[in-house]
Design a protein around this nucleic acid. Structure first.
Lengths: 116, 116
DNA sequence: GCCTTTCGCAACCTTTAGTTGCGCATCAGC
DNA sequence: GCTGATGCGCAACTAAAGGTTGCGAAAGGC
């Protein structure tokens, strides 16, 4: 199944560093590559690259402010991403439940016919 | 927040190819590197490496059967992974809702005091 | 016994995350 | 209005991960 997910979005939020960045941005409201790198074991450049990725898939948006470049989470897009995460999770859950039903059904029918 | 997730697990299911492998294994019940590679635009080797990763984090388990090496999804582990996916999703959702509430509260108080 | 199938190991290529180094722009102080 | 600090982007380099091909070895079919 895997849901017809934008694979770009998935690979964007699949990276643990980028998820942390999103968390930090949500907590602080906004931030720059420099300010965010202060809270992470990463250089400004690395953070900047991740922000560029997140920007490309629309999860964050940058607003230039003087010599700074302030990033902010796009709430609508993040909500969409969150929904997709949950979707994959529940899809697997559903599949597992279905398998369990089938397994139980087989066991029941075996008990009836063979008794082993 | 990002939940104190095993980062290994996340990066395992973060890869779209590996998610597809899980889906295929769930659909077929079990499979080998060779059989799975037939359904994917990948060589057996690539699939084999992915299965090794999934095996290391416990999402699948291998049972040698003659000259074959049959892989099967570990349902308990996958259920755990699904739960973690859903958890991150709902965590973001909750955070977004909280932010929205705050924004609305600010707007309300501004309406009361200033009227602009 | 031979041929096929399936696998694991090793060498290699490419992409991506991360680093360092440099040059340009913007704001603050004097 | 220079001068210095701060924040940024671009470029070159390294390290790891996903992918490929090319072996040789073990298990089955006939």
């Amino acid at each position: 199944m895997s849901t017809p997910v934008d694979d770009e979005l998935w690979s964007a939020i699949g990276d643990p560093t980028r998820r942390t960045l999103i968390d930090l941005l949500l907590a602080a409201g906004a931030g720059t590559a420099t300010s965010l790198s202060a809270d992470l074991p990463l250089t400004r450049q690395a953070v900047s690259k991740h922000l560029a990725v997140l920007d490309r898939v629309g999860l964050v948006r940058a607003e230039p402010a003087g010599r700074e470049r302030r990033y902010r989470v796009d709430e609508a897009q993040l909500a969409r991403a969150a929904a997709q995460l949950a979707a994959v999770g529940t899809s697997w859950d559903a599949r597992l439940r279905r398998i369990k039903h089938i397994a139980e059904a087989i066991e029941r029918s075996r008990d009836h016919t063979e008794g082993e």
